[in-house]
Design a protein around this nucleic acid. Structure first.
Lengths: 172, 172
DNA sequence: CGCATTCACTTAACATGTTAAGTATCTTCC
DNA sequence: GGAAGATACTTAACATGTTAAGTGAATGCG
């Protein structure tokens, strides 16, 4: 039900009356979601052809750049939560795309690295992936792309330490 | 294993040598993902307190703005895939937060609307949600926020029609 | 009319996101 | 050196993302 004023084409300047909430489609989270989806839509088909999901690809890329890492550090790098990473590593290991061995000094830690097979798979995916990225850059513009990334970084930094714990600090 | 050149602090101008791929953490998808996560991290606790997930909240907001819609149109508005929406609507209906009735003219279509209870729930969530949004705007800057959203929109538009079908057009 | 297509969803199946518990290992500190 | 607490994962449980298949209802067309 929900009766509303029924004023569709009223998106001008002084539209601050009794609007209960910012137009949904213009919220920051939605903008970010839509933009990211527009980008990922380009990559998914290629990854899929190689039997990889977006997250698996993130992990392989992260591993290719660091040789060997602990799971926790990998989670931070690939921006995945522990449980997700745990599952994916199990699968990637079963497919022999990565290798795992527990650290000698600390039996809790397990060191992960990409395997030869993993490296080869990456080599087969990278070209098309790079081509797609290049096309995106061409369409949007390299300059603007850099600007956008800068702003996204700023946004992230400006929100750092707002929602969680806040250990050592004044007032509270 | 994976032998690499081992040249960490070499991110200057002429770093186009044999780098197999752009530094992972600086890729556009990652930037978008991290930024969005930084934003959503602010909202999730509040939504959770009210028993809502991010997606459920998106649906309620979309419904509050349009009175009644078909499921397909709602999917487009709330930016959810059909299957996800189908499940969520089932749950929201069971919780009496929305109402559903099949259209008379076309038995395939089901018209969805928010219920009184749904409206009340929204009213109880909106204040804190608005406050969070205001704080984000304050921290990042209203001007920059608008710029960012504009760029995200441009990015989305510049990629529109690149990955899918492309029905009526020249050259295949 | 009758049948193949298309449409508007819904189900299914598998992968990940998200939070809470569980497990083994390590560290501290008495 | 031994129990309490902290760490580094892993499991569990539930919700959503993603693709494919299924179902019932309209449409198009001979």
């Amino acid at each position: 039900m929900v009766k509303r004023p029924a004023d569709p084409a009223d998106d001008g300047a002084a539209a601050v009356r009794q609007v209960p909430m910012r137009d949904f489609s213009r919220s920051l989270p939605m903008s970010l979601l839509r933009a990211r989806e527009a980008v990922m839509r380009q990559f998914r088909p290629s990854l899929r052809e190689h039997g990889l999901t977006e997250q698996q690809w993130r992990i392989l890329r992260a591993l290719a750049a660091i040789d060997t890492v602990e799971v926790t550090e990998l989670a931070r790098t690939a921006f995945l939560l522990g449980p997700s990473l745990s599952r994916i590593l199990r699968d990637l290991e079963a497919r022999n795309l990565i290798e795992r061995k527990t650290a000698k000094a600390d039996q809790r830690r397990s060191m992960v690295s990409i395997s030869e097979k993993g490296v080869k798979l990456m080599a087969s995916v990278a070209p098309s992936s790079e081509a797609i990225y290049a096309e995106i850059t061409r369409r949007f513009g390299a300059r603007k792309l850099a600007e956008l990334q800068e702003m996204l970084g700023e946004l992230e930094r400006s929100l750092a330490g707002l929602g969680a714990a806040e250990e050592a600090s004044a007032g509270e």
